[in-house]
Design a protein around this nucleic acid. Sequence first.
DNA 1: CGTCTATTTGAATGTACTCAAAAGCGGTGG
DNA 2: CCACCGCTTTTGAGTACATTCAAATAGACG
Lengths: 190, 190
Amino acid sequence: MYAAVLTNVAQSIVLTPAEEEAFTTCLVPKHVARLDAILPAGRPARYLAFVVQGCVRTYTTDAKGKEHVLALAPEGWWCGNFTSLVPGARELLALQALEDTTVLLLRLDHLEQLCVQMPKFERFFRLLFQNGYLLAQRRLEARATYTAAVRYARFCRQYPQLHQRVALKHIASFLGITPEFLSMLRTKQL
Amino acid sequence: MYAAVLTNVAQSIVLTPAEEEAFTTCLVPKHVARLDAILPAGRPARYLAFVVQGCVRTYTTDAKGKEHVLALAPEGWWCGNFTSLVPGARELLALQALEDTTVLLLRLDHLEQLCVQMPKFERFFRLLFQNGYLLAQRRLEARATYTAAVRYARFCRQYPQLHQRVALKHIASFLGITPEFLSMLRTKQL
DNA sequence: CGTCTATTTGAATGTACTCAAAAGCGGTGG
DNA sequence: CCACCGCTTTTGAGTACATTCAAATAGACG
């Protein structure tokens, strides 16, 4: 159950067995059926989630009721409203399982505790957020540089597993285009 | 010279006078004339910069030679290639002064040292990157939700100082549109 | 088998871009 | 002081990329 998340953490910091123990006791496993919400929507997120098995989408709903996919997280990825750790940020993000999914939930106050008790975790989450920042910045840049057709091609190359598993409409939303247009691209490009 | 940056840091962590001293000795002041580069371009960034006075733009140059503005940083903001701290990331970002500008440079290896010696700094930079991530995510969302006209209006409201000080073409690039189109928006909206 | 949702297809439209050229603006040197 | 130069902004015509709306088709699930 915890092997994957410990491997993930080990890419950034080295933990003693005791520290691993302290970490995993903060993690709450949860199984969520396909298309169900990981967390109750409509309130500021109080958890981060590590995807052990399955796939999760993070999205917002705008004033017109349209959903915008901000992230797609298969096994081995973290997701959740990182921003609710920023004072003043009140984004309401929803997390939905796109397949039958197992996640490990980490309460944000437990995260803070881990960071205070073991500064290593401060480092781990710094690197996690840096990486998230990098990915978001690259997507902004890609959006300014390439047409939707190119962005889709790059997406397929970069996440070969995902574009098979995830519904077209979610990929379209993630790329910032309409499902109709992506459908058209898909057929004309083959 | 250091008052502004200490105020900035104090928003996230509390430093003793000794720690303030250790921090500021890592910072190298640099004055850069309008339109000059803050750092030599074309190589992976080895510094973060805190803007004491003036204004800095962070940008990339794509395969076709087009520049894309990723960030605009007036007084009190950090800028630089945060991503060069992420293993494997080899983004080449350039920093340019848009006005006569004073920055405080922090070498990335000094940053690492500060974090190791004083875990407080690990926390400070975690919060800094979290905030950067939040802003990048909001821009992605805005790009998907609003037309260029609305994004420009929001930009003007959010950064009233900037849209007076910064050349139209840089604002256009930051918003992800052409200068011609922004010029048109500007006149038709008044 | 019927219902619900996702995907595909197509026509009309809109948003934003490209290219070209003119106008404005600031600095520099004659 | 004025004329010229280089760069930014404006303007406009034509076009491309992507959206909207509507309807048909395909798939998934009970």
